[in-house]
Design a protein around this nucleic acid. Structure first.
Length: 485
RNA sequence: GGGGGCGUAGCUCAGGGGUAGAGCAACGGCCUUUUAAGCCGCAGGUCGGAGGUUCAAAUCCUCCCGCCCUCACCA
């Protein structure tokens, strides 16, 4: 009721403004500067017109200070009774509220405390608010409100503004780097017939006009590779993807993945490119190759470690997967080592290796590490290694125990691909609903011929989470999905 | 889905069986240099919801809703 009371008082102010001939919701306002530009101006500059949300108001009898703010910056404004007249001054004091959008025109001056300020000659209400803002120095603390009403968090928290601006900058920087290295940005379908390109459960929906079941993509991979068939030699997509799996601090169902594909590269070329790309991104966005995460300095400047899945497991668990030629042998070794893996009995050898890795090795990989050479049955779209046909030429970049990048030399042999997808289809038929579907349309494209390719995918939300020192993806996604109230 | 924590004024938080509290914001005043402005005054609550125990419940119990953490599931 108190809030409703407050709202009513503000509605009354709107009426009062209308009676005084002021439109509380005008059509436009001509600015001469943005706030972050205006606060760089010379003292004495006249006719400066700025606009923003009023986030503070400190009235005195004949002089009032306010602050206009937007995502990029803020600037102080001052209303002087003797300049704008008693009537106007009183109307402002009676009708203005913290939270209102205001436009002002005036001269830049310096206050006694030395702050550049606009001395308001004219002002306009640009958007009256009806609701109060969060409290001014603790800001918004309630996680639920932060997520449900992110706009309040962004208004109240400079850290949050910085974090989301950095997200944008990271994405821009990645685009720029790829653009400058001959990649074409493309868009491929989000709604599609088959959910492929990764091992994950998709979201299903229904297409009314075509009366068919469609899926939200889990990865853009097979479409991007079709474009390589078409003659593109380097493509990328900033791809929103959807996976109908569990939700936790490092998994969201709706997330952003950057994928690129480069013809004529292998995964070694791709690792080199990845290091250069990261160096550029970190220097551009952070000005440093070292970042602090949970009290640890992560150093991207040194040569990144390379660890094969086999080496990592051997070191951490003492288990040599090469000595376990099949799932049964490996299962025995795992239980002999006293390690428990859920549903171990139902997993194949590759899946066991993967579970074992996630359970023991991954969280120990703090410094940037290329984890290489994954079992072939976990990588149905990756090229079989020439050196060991049970392995793929694949790498993941792991930082702070989080998988950030996944990449490989792509499988371009249509016959091998068909066999591998048939194996997946068999798993699927046996009840594994994350196994990949046989995708004839993709095989048809492959059979028209593909060059050597190396592809790459990075979780944008994850890298931004790390770079901003957060530990939950939701803190770098403006509006994470929550339950209905 | 299991386990744990949390939910009190618009916001930030106290209070943990005995009359519902503070600061900020709001509202009425004073104030020409504030920036967490200051001072005086005033108002604001179905204590997440529904049951129960009790002479008495924000407080104890049960269920439900929401959020967070964790485990499980999972690129």
């Amino acid at each position: 009721m108190a809030e409703e009371d407050l709202r009513q008082k503000r509605l009354n102010k709107i009426e009062r403004l209308r009676e005084a001939g002021c439109n509380p919701y005008p059509e436009r306002f001509e600015r001469t500067h943005r706030l972050n530009e205006a606060c760089q101006l010379e003292e004495g500059t006249e006719g400066v017109r700025i606009a923003g949300r009023l986030t503070a108001f400190r009235p005195f009898g004949k002089l009032s200070f306010g602050r206009l703010q937007d995502i990029h910056g803020s600037m102080q404004i001052a209303f002087q009774r003797d300049l704008i007249g008693t009537e106007t001054y009183q109307l402002i004091k009676k009708t203005i509220d913290i939270g209102d959008f205001i436009g002002v025109e005036g001269e830049v001056f310096r206050t006694k405390t030395g702050e550049l300020t606009i001395r308001v000659a004219h002002h306009e209400f640009l958007g009256k608010s009806l609701r109060p803002l969060p409290e001014k120095w603790h800001g918004l603390q309630d996680r639920e409100t932060i997520y449900r009403q992110r706009y309040l968090d962004l208004i109240a928290s400079p850290e949050s503004r910085e974090r989301f601006l950095l997200r944008t900058q990271v994405i821009q920087t990645l685009r720029r780097y790829l653009d400058e290295h001959g990649f074409q940005e493309v868009d491929t379908p989000i709604l599609c017939n088959k959910a492929t390109g990764a091992l994950a459960r998709p979201f299903k929906t229904h297409h009314n006009a075509l009366n068919m079941e469609v899926f939200l993509r889990i990865a853009p991979e097979t479409y991007l590779k079709r474009l390589i068939v078409a003659g593109y030699d380097r493509v990328y997509e900033m791809a929103r993807c959807f996976r109908n799996e569990g939700m936790d601090p490092s998994h969201l169902q709706d997330f952003t993945m950057l994928e690129y594909y480069a013809a004529y590269w292998n995964y070694e070329d791709n690792m080199r490119f990845t290091e250069e790309l990261f160096r550029f991104m970190l220097e551009t966005c952070l000005g440093s190759l070292q970042i602090e995460i949970a009290g640890e300095t992560i150093d991207f400047s040194k040569k990144w470690k390379r660890v094969s899945l086999r080496e990592g497991l051997l070191e951490e668990t003492g288990i040599d997967v090469d000595e376990c030629p099949d799932a049964d042998a490996l299962r025995e070794r795992i239980s002999a080592a006293g390690i428990e893996i859920e549903k171990a009995g139902t997993l194949g050898r590759g899946a066991l290796i993967d579970s074992l890795y996630k359970k023991t090795v991954r969280k120990k990989l703090i410094q940037p590490t290329f984890l290489v050479q994954h079992p072939i049955d976990l990588s149905p779209l990756a090229r079989r290694s020439d050196k060991d046909t049970n392995l793929t030429d694949r790498f993941q970049l792991v930082v702070a125990g989080w998988e950030i990048v996944n990449a490989y030399s792509e499988l371009v042999d249509p016959i091998d691909q068909r066999n591998r997808l048939e194996e997946q289809a068999a798993l699927r038929a046996a009840g594994d609903d994350e196994a990949m579907e046989l995708d004839e349309d993709y095989l048809l494209a492959m059979e028209h011929g593909m060059p050597p390719i190396s592809g790459w995918g990075m979780g944008i939300d994850r890298i931004v989470t790390l770079l901003t020192g957060q530990d939950n993806l939701r803190d770098v996604v403006p509006f994470p999905l929550l339950k209905n109230l």
